[in-house]
Design a protein around this nucleic acid. Structure first.
Lengths: 219, 219
DNA sequence: CATATATTGAACGCTTACGTTTAATTAAAC
DNA sequence: GTTTAATTAAACGTAAGCGTTCAATATATG
């Protein structure tokens, strides 16, 4: 039984809760959990990294599982916030899509992101809810953003697509190519790889536009 | 120090090595490692599953790491063997590609495969060599097979592609779509999802062919 | 100051699991 | 039957790590 955790001492009498420690613990937990994995990570190590005693960790979070859940939630929140591709060039649909591809790739191929995805996948194996949380916070949002972008281009007559959701999946798939997997498998991102990725993205957009660029060039 | 392992007792005098146990151990190790992960898997559990004593495991494999390496190697070998897409219909390039997409998806979305990939990714985080072994045994082979298939179609005049390697990456990416990720994140493969996947594959091939189908229809 | 709460370090009990050792048993060769 | 080597069950030593307890200390209120 994980005792009382939220003791909501709303400015009671004794020593006040050090609110800063909360953030420290979660930050440390994120670092530890998503670089070591759940079972490898240790509470003691997290406490040390957070400059906090182990007891404090257990006072705020009842168990390792609870702390992990909080870390996942926090990481997902961060991911959601960073998923703000508002600054897309609007100089023609081709540039816009290539730009999207580049930003998407940069976002997904960060080591931090790759590690997070790896460990979320493992945890999702025995807990699909975690997988769903991850998908909803990141990939599905990204996919939705691209779908919306395409739909908007359809509305303004730049594209001619019947199923923008599926088209977005096609385009995103081509943008990822095998780089996605190579990164997840720990292969380095050399300059040559980067160049190949850039080439793949542009040619993917071009392949995409051959079919979907609107005939009535009203743009 | 992991003592002497290969004591190559080539039909000496004493009790002969039970060769069957070797396969049992590796089979058990594969099941255990790729459903629990390296750190969660226990040698004792593997030994029990293999109907073998723990000492025997340590006599054959010096350490948990060595056993894991053997399990990875074995799983990769199996993967390579199963990657034999020779039975592709030859009734036109469209059917051939759709067929390839279906077989590829069926191959990749098996629970066994998904689990293996998940755990390989985690291990590759601290050991890129493992990631490379995995990539060479599976994904890169698959990609090579599709590239070869496309090149052959180019040679016979069915397709007109300048860079078949990149084209294969595009097509494979579209075939995967988001299903790949959804499966890795433990989301169920419902009938609806299967239908959507089939639709995505066929429309991906069609999108692909709009650009690459040879103009001179000599087939 | 007295009281109440938060935090800490240290130690504890407990479990799991790696890898080893030992004595006993089994299955072959000579 | 004797010898040699493989296998086993059981126990061991060791280490790590979860979650708890406790006494001591810090920081607030009244």
């Amino acid at each position: 039984m994980s005792s009382r955790i939220s003791k909501k001492s709303k400015s009671g009498r004794g020593r006040p809760v050090d609110t800063a420690k909360m953030a420290q613990i979660i930050a440390a937990a994120r670092t530890e959990f998503f670089s070591q994995g759940f079972s490898q990570a240790s509470i003691e190590s997290i406490a040390a990294r957070a400059d906090v005693s182990k007891v404090t960790v257990y006072n705020r979070f009842g168990s390792k599982e609870d702390l992990f859940a909080a870390a996942v939630q926090s990481e997902c929140d961060t991911m959601r916030e960073k998923l703000d591709f508002a600054n897309l060039s609007d100089r023609g649909i081709r540039d816009t899509l290539i730009n999207f591809g580049l930003e998407m790739t940069a976002f997904l191929e960060r080591e931090e992101m790759v590690r997070f995805e790896r460990h979320m996948a493992v945890e999702a194996e025995n807990n699909p809810i975690i997988g769903q949380l991850f998908l909803d916070s990141g990939p599905r949002r990204l996919h939705g953003a691209l779908s919306a972008l395409l739909s908007k281009a359809v509305d303004t007559g730049k594209l001619d697509i019947s199923d923008t959701v599926e088209a977005a999946e096609h385009l995103a798939g081509m943008i990822k190519g095998m780089s996605d997997l190579e990164r997840r498998m720990g292969q380095p991102r050399s300059e040559q790889v980067k160049a190949k990725t850039l080439k793949r993205i542009t040619s993917a957009v071009d392949l995409f536009l051959v079919s979907y660029a609107s005939a009535k060039k009203m743009g």
